[in-house]
């Protein structure tokens, strides 16, 4: 059973200016149990609308989405999901502990189990000292931690996180990453949207890239990294690598540089240079830029 499935999902709504907006246009994807999937796209691509559909905040205009085979938004589905909204102001006159207690009670937790769960989670997100202060006195980053803690209440099987690192400092991001990795190790599925490509790169198993409400790219992160990685060798002596290299040029003084898009061609080139008895001066592996990939892919789709 897939953790999340959307099939030909469409979301239309009327904007405040009265115009009809087709936010999501025939989106289909799946998320496997235990997987961490990053949901990427430029502003207005339809990420939040899709997540809202998954949570039942918005009804699909057409198509469907489900969580473990349960209709998205149903009480049964919501019992298995933890959700972090993009920007949420938690009740300013409640403390983080009271906030989690309230949400925990709505989740069906009770008594000492609830109290323990709330306290533990707040400590895990680094709010052990601030759990009894009013939310209104907390910083944006601390409120985001409250949000992360509440999303983890009840040990959900799926976490849906909208812009999860918003407001967090680098230490907070690292802690969050570790927390989420630990959750994944316990079998939790993570589906999150983010603009922070480095976070995506470090955390995800797979990415979904959407633009104008349509899925334009879906790739395991490791395959993408491999694809984006480039190699470069510098050697002395005239050995032609034109047939193997992306780029091949002379630097002067009988020195040449060649760039390769994959490892196989690099190895072939090294073999050829060495067979010709030429000296290899340098070999460099360059990790590709996810940002460039993102911009190029969006540019192509636009």
């Amino acid at each position: 059973m897939q953790a999340i499935v959307t099939e030909d999902l469409h979301v239309r709504y009327r904007a405040k200016n009265g115009q009809n907006v087709h936010a999501v246009q025939g989106l289909s994807f799946e998320v496997n149990p235990g997987e961490i999937v990053g949901f990427l796209g430029p502003n207005g691509a339809g990420k939040s609308s899709t997540l809202k559909c998954l949570m039942g905040f918005v009804q699909p205009s057409a198509g469907s989405c489900s969580v473990f085979g349960l209709a998205a938004g149903s009480l049964e589905a919501k019992r298995r999901i933890g959700y972090l909204p993009e920007v949420a102001l938690y009740y300013p006159y409640l403390t983080p502990l009271e906030t989690l207690t309230l949400y925990g009670e709505l989740q069906g937790l009770r008594g000492s189990r609830l109290k323990r769960a709330a306290t533990d989670l707040l400590e895990q997100v680094g709010l052990g000292q601030a759990m009894n202060k009013l939310n209104r006195s907390l910083s944006k980053g601390m409120l985001q931690r409250v949000g992360i803690a509440q999303s983890l209440l009840g040990d959900p099987e799926v976490l849906v996180l909208d812009e999860m690192t918003s407001g967090l400092d680098p230490i907070g991001r690292k802690e969050l990453r570790e927390l989420l990795k630990a959750r994944q190790a316990q079998g939790t599925t993570l589906f999150f949207s983010s603009h922070e490509l480095s976070e995506v790169e470090m955390l995800c198993d797979r990415i979904l890239l959407i633009h104008q409400g349509k899925l334009i790219e879906e790739r395991p992160i490791q395959a993408l990294k491999d694809e984006l990685r480039q190699f470069e060798i510098t050697y002395q002596g005239a050995v032609s690598l034109v047939d193997l290299a992306l780029e091949w040029n002379e630097l002067g003084d009988n020195t040449y540089r060649a760039r390769f898009s994959d490892k196989q061609n690099l190895l072939k080139a090294l073999d050829r240079v060495q067979r010709e008895g030429r000296a290899v001066v340098d070999v460099v592996a360059q990790e590709g830029s996810l940002e460039e990939f993102f911009v190029e892919t969006i540019g192509r789709a636009a």
């Binding site: 905040f57 009480l75 919501k78 999901i81 959700y83 949420a88 938690y90 989740q107 999303s151």
Partner: peptide, 14 residues
């Protein structure tokens, strides 16, 4: 307005 509704509606309540 304050989006406090989302964490509420994300719970298994109607």
């Amino acid at each position: 307005k304050n989006r406090t509704l989302y964490p509420l509606l994300a719970r298994p309540i109607s």
